[in-house]
Design a protein around this nucleic acid. Structure first.
Lengths: 196, 196
DNA sequence: ACAAAAGTGTTAAGGATACACCCATGA
DNA sequence: TCATGGGTGTATCCTTAACACTTTTGT
């Protein structure tokens, strides 16, 4: 047994700030007898992440075997580091792709949004993360229908330009849940209304 | 640097045989300087797999860090080994879950089906892999609509009990493709008919 | 009154399941 | 001609994007 391939854990963290998707990449070598999750928590403050999941394990250019994680930080939480616009870095692209997919069929938005928000604010986050326009009307309808969003007491006062006060919402759950079962060919499930 | 955590590559291979989903699990230690794919090809005959993809990397009970792959073998190809009914093994369960998901939104069936088949035969494969009943009518319609299946010349003669001869089909592609863009909130894509 | 922002009602289109019915073959 | 397996036509349901219209505020 030679001291063969070195192994490391890389965190690719994403957040939306000022209407832009930003990324932060950090890696640490995997310690002897250390868990992947333990190494991850050395690489980044896991407490600041509302959600994280493993992406893939790949051989980096420098010959180390890296297990890559995707982490998401809510808009109202701070995590300092070298944040950059989510660009063309290969790992960041993979992480972004995963995020976009999950925004479509899970409640992953909870991990990017602040605790309480208006539909307009949520729309900005989705636009930045998805990279294409999203209609506020449909965003609300889809997420409410799926039981992902819940109304919160009160409204947000309009700005200096006026306008109707906006209703406040929050995500019903703060852990990842699949909300759109894309199970084609499945028998029709009769009483499949939201059970909550 | 101690000779820290050992790393291995595990192949979880699935196939459908006699209407049942079967699994084969094989693992090898990752050699020094060896690629994950190289180790995989030592663990199993990759040439017999119509498709394979990485599942996850996890710490096994014995303390080795294992990168797990899912492999799929077509019904008309042979790969010997200790095939067992796909059961409750944790890795096999994870692999089965991934397979079921991919059967819904990709053309993954190509990796389980023989080169040419009737809809009935394909239905048996889907039933075994998905674990629930599938209507032949809808299976055909969904897959043909998506451009996943193609007609092949000729028909299969009926058995001794009679019946109409069955049309033959094949998969249009033999590499994994996403056929159902579950992209909710996306603007309507106008000319998105099959481009082939 | 008017502009601006938010929210609701309604329409239309597409995808998918279910089911009734027609087709082709062997005995 | 009847049973059997295969295939097509059609109806219905559901989800969702689009858009017009109403509501509520500030100036």
């Amino acid at each position: 047994m030679v001291d063969s391939t070195r192994h490391s854990v890389v965190a690719v963290v994403l957040r939306v700030r000022d209407g832009r998707l930003e990324s932060l990449v950090r890696g640490v070598p995997l310690g002897s007898g250390e868990t992947l999750e333990e190494a991850l928590s050395r690489a980044v403050d896991v407490g600041a992440l509302a959600h994280h999941e493993q992406l893939e394990t790949r051989l980096l250019a420098d010959g180390t075997l890296a297990t890559v994680y995707l982490g998401l930080v809510p808009a109202d939480r701070d995590l300092d580091g070298d944040w950059r616009p989510a660009g063309s870095d290969e790992l960041v692209v993979a992480a972004t792709a995963r995020l976009r997919a999950k925004l479509s069929y899970t409640n992953a938005g909870f991990a990017l949004a602040p605790a309480v928000f208006t539909i307009s604010e949520l729309r900005e986050i989705y636009v930045a993360a998805l990279g294409h326009d999203v209609a506020a009307t449909n965003l609300q309808r889809v997420l409410v229908r799926r039981g992902v969003l819940e109304r919160v007491e009160g409204v947000r006062a309009p700005g200096r330009a006026g306008g109707r006060p906006a209703a406040l919402f929050r995500f019903a759950s703060s852990s990842l849940e699949v909300t759109d079962q894309f199970a084609v060919l499945a028998p029709r499930r009769p009483g499949s209304r939201a059970s909550a």
